[in-house]
Design a protein around this nucleic acid. Structure first.
Length: 576
RNA sequence: GCCGAUGUAGUUCAAUGGUAGAACGAGGGACUCAUAAGCCCUAGACAAAGGUCCGAUUCCUUUCAUCGGCACCA
């Protein structure tokens, strides 16, 4: 039973694109969503945490052509991998993790499309675009190269010349061709094969210009609760004035346009994948057998909508998606935007083509997910680009997570279990130190909770670890291993140890949003379940037994780190 | 090119118009319940140059360095 004051919290986690494995950079941007979801659930609020795989688009279609398989095979493969690594591996507690290739999604997207069309926010316009007779498809700019009209450089990209730096319209390129980098599986191609031609094409446009005032109003009222990178981008973007955008494409791999005469075109990802937040919400409700329940989140002014993603997704979540929602008119617009900066790897950007990456499946095969959750909270790109450094990962995990936190749990529980196998009686009166320690722990629920709500995960977890440090000091000062030898002090030892054990229980609640499996493990040691867990100071049990105790995490060995580093060195050698 | 961000101890990150905090790493110490973990102590930093101000790491300008966006790439 939810309290009557329960809030409806919607959390939209950016949908990863299903054309390659996720790397740690993606995960660093995603982590916050799960922390927020778990936190609000513990608070007793109604949480709807949705995500899914973004499966459509020309890059996947071209890649499929290259490998001689269907786009669906690629999408299926990575969708399955995302689900495995994010949900099972990282422990993300999504209420639904779906994908854009479902019929349900297509129906919702088409419904939204028709609604905006009816309201006059969509119109068609003909424009020229580059077409490949060989691939039988129109190509996005970055798949095109040609001779720069300004400097004559022969390998200018469709959008920019790397030699003279000019911004280009791909239609200006002389001798436009398919960028050979995208055709890797075909052997030699003739000049004729790679030639592109200009063709007329008609597309639907979203009338952003008509929504300009609404968007300005939206940004100025709501951006106070966004991360700074999102609010400053949105403001700067609006200052430049809004141009209408095409929201359909000439492709065969996407959601069909629900209007006759456009069978060879599809709705573009900007409209289509973003609408996944809504379609997933509706699917969640349907699968639950409460098909109207999505409205608690979307047709409810009191709901709070969080969006969590990397900074590359800021335009879509601060401008495009709000524009679609405002045009629709009844749906709830974003409230809090938790947009991360980038995570670099050993000082360099993650790069698929240069093989400079740590892939999530590889990582999970070699290291514990909980240690990654910890590291990305403590060292994630919250306010500026951050760096994943292997030695740093190992130092922090071994030194702080294991040394400070894990060791506290282990030293107290093993000692307590050994000396008081029948359990510990919680003292009827607390001494000054014990009172202060437990008071500090109790206060952390509100201070850390506030920080989580604001997306300041590092500071929140730091506050939690601070309690563990105090716990270690308390144990050192108390020296139960001395006192226990003195029969007259046995009562004192039991009192202090009971306080310590209870502190560990409090810690196990506080870390739950960050390290859910560790939290469960500790509760298990104490013979407690986590089903009824609340984000509040738990009342101490009169008699607390310790069922079992063992180290919470495995230490990271130097050899494991060396192996990862030498793998990266190999990548560097073969790609320079 | 235009726009924007960043540049803080060996490393990874904080904070702030008034003498810069933390963690890891380094050095030293007392202890031993604990995954040689924990605790105490010590050393160590505001990219460079100007400007505004009683006073700037914090605001402004310039330089250098790194990075991102610049719309059909997610």
């Amino acid at each position: 039973m939810k309290p009557s004051s329960a809030k409806n919290i919607f959390i939209g986690l950016a949908w990863p694109y299903a054309n390659g494995s996720l790397h740690l950079g993606h995960v660093s941007a995603f982590m916050g969503a799960d922390i927020i979801a778990r936190y609000y659930r513990l608070k007793g609020d109604n949480v709807l945490f949705v995500s899914g795989s973004d499966c459509y688009g020309t890059p996947i279609a071209v890649e499929a052509d290259e490998r001689g398989i269907s786009p669906a095979e690629i999408a299926d493969k990575y969708h399955a991998e995302f689900k495995e690594t994010l949900i099972n591996g990282m422990g993300f507690s999504c209420d639904i993790y779906t994908r854009t290739t479902t019929e349900h999604h297509a129906r919702v997207v088409q419904g939204l499309f028709l609604e905006l069309h009816k309201k006059g926010f969509l119109y068609t316009k003909k424009e020229k675009a580059l077409y490949s007779p060989f691939l039988k498809r129109f190509l996005p700019d970055r798949f095109v190269e040609g001779t720069c009209p300004k400097c004559g450089f022969g390998e200018a990209r469709g959008d920019q010349c790397d030699q003279c730096g000019s911004l280009l319209d791909p239609l200006e390129l002389k001798n436009p061709r398919i960028n050979p980098k995208i055709l890797t599986h075909r052997g030699k191609l003739t000049d004729a094969d790679v030639q592109l031609e200009t063709r007329q094409s008609e597309q639907f446009y979203l009338k952003l210009s008509a929504l300009e005032r609404d968007l300005e109003n939206f940004v100025s009222t709501k951006s106070g609760l966004w991360r700074v990178n999102a609010s400053s981008f949105a403001k700067g973007f609006l200052k430049q004035g809004l141009n209408d955008r095409a929201i359909t494409r000439d492709t065969d791999w996407g959601v069909p346009i629900p209007i006759a005469g456009y069978e060879d075109k599809k709705i573009y990802v900007w409209f289509e994948a973003l609408a996944g937040y809504l379609s997933a919400s509706k699917l969640w409700a349907e699968e639950k057998g409460q098909s109207e329940e999505w409205k608690d989140f979307w047709h409810n002014d009191e709901a709070i909508h969080y969006y969590v993603h990397g900074k590359d997704n800021i335009p879509f979540h601060t401008i495009i998606w709000p524009a679609i929602l405002l045009a629709e008119g009844k749906l709830h617009t974003p409230d809090r935007i938790i947009s991360s900066e980038y995570l670099n790897l050993e000082g360099k950007q993650f790069s698929k083509s240069r093989a400079w990456a740590v892939w999530l499946p590889d990582f999970l095969a070699n290291f514990e997910a909980e240690t990654l959750r910890y590291f990305l909270v403590m060292n994630g790109p919250e306010s500026s680009d951050a760096n994943f450094v292997w030695s740093e990962y190992s130092n922090l995990v071994n030194g702080e997570l294991i040394g400070t936190f894990g060791n506290l749990v282990n030293r107290v529980l093993t000692f307590g279990k050994d000396k008081f196998p029948d359990g510990l009686n919680f003292p009827t009166a607390l001494n000054k130190e014990s009172k202060e320690l437990l008071l500090l722990a109790g206060e952390t629920f509100s201070s850390a909770g506030r920080l989580i709500e604001d997306g300041k995960f590092r500071a929140a977890f730091r506050a939690v670890l601070n309690i563990a440090e105090n716990g270690n000091r308390f144990v050192n000062k108390s020296e139960p291993w001395h006192k226990i030898k003195d029969e007259t002090k046995k009562g004192e030892v039991e009192d202090e140890l009971a306080v310590m054990v209870h502190l560990i229980r409090v810690l196990a609640v506080l870390i739950n949003p960050f390290l859910p499996r560790t939290s469960e493990k500790i509760h298990g040691f104490l013979g407690l379940g986590t089903k009824e867990l609340k984000w509040a100071y738990p009342e101490p049990n009169k008699l607390q037994k310790i069922i079992s105790a063992s180290p919470l995490f495995k230490k990271i060995e130097d050899e494991q780190i060396d192996k990862q580093l030498s793998g990266l060195k190999d990548a560097l050698r073969s790609h320079t």
